[in-house]
């Protein structure tokens, strides 16, 4: 290709218009870029296929879409996994499980999904978007978080009705559905113009830790993450809702071996240690 470029340039010297030369040069550059890209993707794909067919070390890049409440634990588990498999690269994509499921339904590329509820996973499963069936790898429970020092003396769900502003997740996020369920079971009704809706559990937590919400309902593990920026008020077991966290490989993944190994790793002793340390309960 280089040789051809040279020839065209020489042709231009022998009397052609400079604009033609510029055009050819630009096209040449584009062609070179395209060639470079395709070579790159070839190089990326080749070792993956060999890894799948033999016991060669795992390699390739996968994307893991995980619930916002898994931000710290999945970052920790990813780092451990990548240390064991240096040729593997894992991109993490965090958001509310409802939003992540909608992304995958819309065709967004993901190789592994881990959600905070089974509903979102069932949606993907019934749309035949999963490779195999999902397994529950962790459980979580709800807590109330308040401003440091708990200035309004919140003792339980019933006290939320007296507050100016309560932060809950949107009703498409599992944390929003669980909170509605817990409030409904306890027959507590909050007026909608006092509810700030965070688009995932971390946005809800931030409304209390950074913003002016008096209290919020988040997962126990998020309260741990927030540290002394919030006070935690436990919700008694009878009124609480337990969140199941399922994980699965997405159908059509280009690196099924890596994806499956990562799912196994999350459920291994190494993954369990990280999860337990963060406050998750193992199934």
């Amino acid at each position: 290709m280089n040789a051809r470029n040279h020839r065209e340039t020489r042709g231009d010297r022998s009397g052609r218009k400079t604009s033609v030369a510029t055009l050819v040069l630009a096209l040449g550059l584009v062609a070179m870029l395209l060639a470079g890209c395709s070579k790159d993707s070839d190089g990326g794909a080749a070792p993956a296929t060999t890894a799948a067919s033999s016991s060669a070390p795992l390699s390739g890049k996968i994307t893991v879409s995980a619930a916002a409440s898994l931000t710290e634990v999945f970052t920790g588990i990813r780092d451990r996994f990548v240390t064991m498999h240096p040729d593997v690269k894992i991109d993490l994509n965090f958001g509310s499980s409802g939003a992540l499921a909608a992304q995958i339904e819309g065709g967004a590329p993901a190789d592994v999904v881990a959600f905070a509820n089974t509903d979102s996973m069932d949606r993907l499963s019934s749309a035949h978007l999963l490779d195999g069936s999902p397994t529950v790898f962790a459980r979580n429970r709800l807590v109330i978080v308040t401003k440091p020092g708990n200035p309004h003396k919140v003792k339980g769900l019933a006290d939320l009705a007296d507050l100016d502003f309560v932060a809950l997740c949107v009703d498409t996020a599992p944390c929003g559905q669980y909170a509605e369920q817990a409030l409904g079971d306890a027959h507590i009704e909050l007026s909608t113009d006092r509810i700030h809706r965070g688009d995932d559990v971390r946005a809800t937590l931030a409304a209390v830790s950074q913003g002016d919400a008096d209290a919020g309902i988040v997962y126990a593990t998020d309260a741990v993450v927030a540290g002394d920026q919030v006070d935690t008020v436990e919700i008694p077991e009878a009124d609480n809702v337990i969140a199941d966290y399922p994980i699965a490989v997405v159908k059509g993944t280009s690196h099924r071996d890596v994806a499956r190994d990562f799912v196994k790793f999350v459920q291994s002793d190494a993954g369990d240690i990280v999860l337990q340390k963060a406050g998750f309960v193992l199934p």
């Binding site: 909608a102 949107v170 909608t192 113009d193 509810i195 700030h196 809706r197 688009d199």
Partner: peptide, 27 residues
């Protein structure tokens, strides 16, 4: 808006916020 004023239906939930949040439940 969503960072400072929050997302309260009828009080601070403006059109762009509604678009963003309805995208999941009612596209």
């Amino acid at each position: 808006t969503i960072t400072f004023a929050g997302n309260i239906a009828g009080r601070t939930q403006t059109l762009p916020l509604a678009v963003y949040l309805e995208l999941e439940s009612r596209p």
